[in-house]
Simulated scan of single mutants.
Amino acid sequence: MAESGPGDTEGAVGGKSRFDDIYDRPDPRAYFRRLAPLEYEIPHHAQPVFRQAATNRAALDDGHPGRPAVLDVCCSYGINAALLNHDVTLANMYERYSSPDRQAMSTAELAAQDKEFYAERRRPDAVPVFGLDVAAPAVHYALEVGLLDAAFADDLEQAPPSPGLRRALAEVGLVTLTGGGSYVTARTFTALLDGARRPVWVSAFVLRTVSYHPIVRALAAHGLSTTVDVSRTYPQRLFTDEREQRYAIEAVRALGGDPAEREKDGRFHSLRYESRPETR
């Protein structure tokens, strides 16, 4: 879930605004209407990165039965899956789900249209994608319209993987994350990697307000080495208000970062982390 976490629908996580209510809807229209004014854009930046990572990871399994699956953590309505496997852009999705002619549709009508829409735009190099998010309505919609090959609402912060997720983990070769670094911890990644049966890569975009080091340590314990792209940052979205901006500036400084020309200019920014099996 790009901007959510368990708990109240209002308030904040350490000063960060929450959007829990847009994940409890039966379809993604409220999600896009709410995030459009905030110019939420991190899935757009992740699209080419995840496509390349999925291609490179699949190449390692040439000659093995079945392509390695991608597991998108905090997947919400399957936005990353849509962008990974279909000839669509994030801008296309904002326009689609905010359009007046779709606001009067029932969820069933929208889902029927979406299923056809994405099937027509499916890329020939599409890979299996599994989705993990505690927001059950969101993952169920993504599964219904064909964006996800399997969907799980397990909360790995609180409990071990369900039998279904454990079976799915045996097929996973790449784990992706955008925006969920504020809500999942090393507990989630430890549970995922404990259940892995293939070599797993991790590609993650994490807000600069959050320390990713505990997760990096958990990945290292499973034989993964992590690099961070320090050459640039990736804008995530506008701040909801001055309170949230103050929180972000203070959090970035506390982690040793410089908010100048980034958070000070009114947006959250993320760093890109890539984790791969250590070579010997």
Score class of each variant (00 low, 15 high):
Ala2Val: 05
Ser4Phe: 09
Asp8Trp: 03
Gly11Glu: 05
Asp24Gln: 10
Asp27Gly: 02
Arg29His: 11
Tyr31Pro: 14
Leu35Ser: 02
Ile42Leu: 15
Ala54Ile: 04
Asn56Asp: 15
Arg57Asn: 13
Ala59Leu: 08
Ala59His: 06
Leu60Arg: 14
Asp62Ala: 15
Asp62Leu: 15
Pro68Ala: 00
Leu71Gln: 02
Gly78Asp: 04
Ile79His: 01
Leu83Tyr: 11
Asn85Lys: 02
His86Leu: 06
Tyr97Val: 01
Asp101Arg: 15
Arg102Tyr: 08
Ala104Arg: 13
Ser106Ala: 10
Ser106Ile: 01
Glu109Thr: 04
Lys115Glu: 15
Glu116Gln: 09
Arg121Ala: 05
Arg123Thr: 06
Val129Lys: 00
Val129Glu: 00
Asp133Gly: 01
Ala135Met: 10
Ala136Cys: 11
Ala138Tyr: 00
His140Arg: 15
His140Asn: 15
Ala142Lys: 05
Leu143Lys: 14
Asp149Lys: 08
Asp155His: 10
Asp155Leu: 05
Ala159Phe: 11
Ala159His: 13
Pro160Ser: 09
Pro161Ala: 03
Pro163Phe: 06
Arg166Asp: 06
Val175Asn: 02
Val184Tyr: 02
Arg187Leu: 14
Asp194Val: 11
Asp194Phe: 09
Arg197Thr: 14
Trp201Arg: 14
Phe205Gln: 08
Val206Asn: 05
Arg208Asp: 07
Ile215Asp: 03
Val216Ala: 15
Leu219Pro: 13
Ala221Asn: 06
Thr226Pro: 06
Thr226Val: 11
Thr227Pro: 04
Ser231Lys: 11
Phe239Gly: 00
Phe239Pro: 00
Asp241Phe: 08
Gln245Glu: 14
Tyr247Leu: 06
Ala248Trp: 10
Val252Tyr: 10
Gly256Glu: 06
Gly256Arg: 02
Gly257Ser: 10
Pro259Thr: 08
Pro259His: 08
Glu261Thr: 07
Glu261Arg: 10
Phe268Asn: 06
Ser270Thr: 10
Arg272Ile: 05
Arg276Leu: 15
Pro277Ala: 07
Pro277Leu: 05
Glu278Met: 12
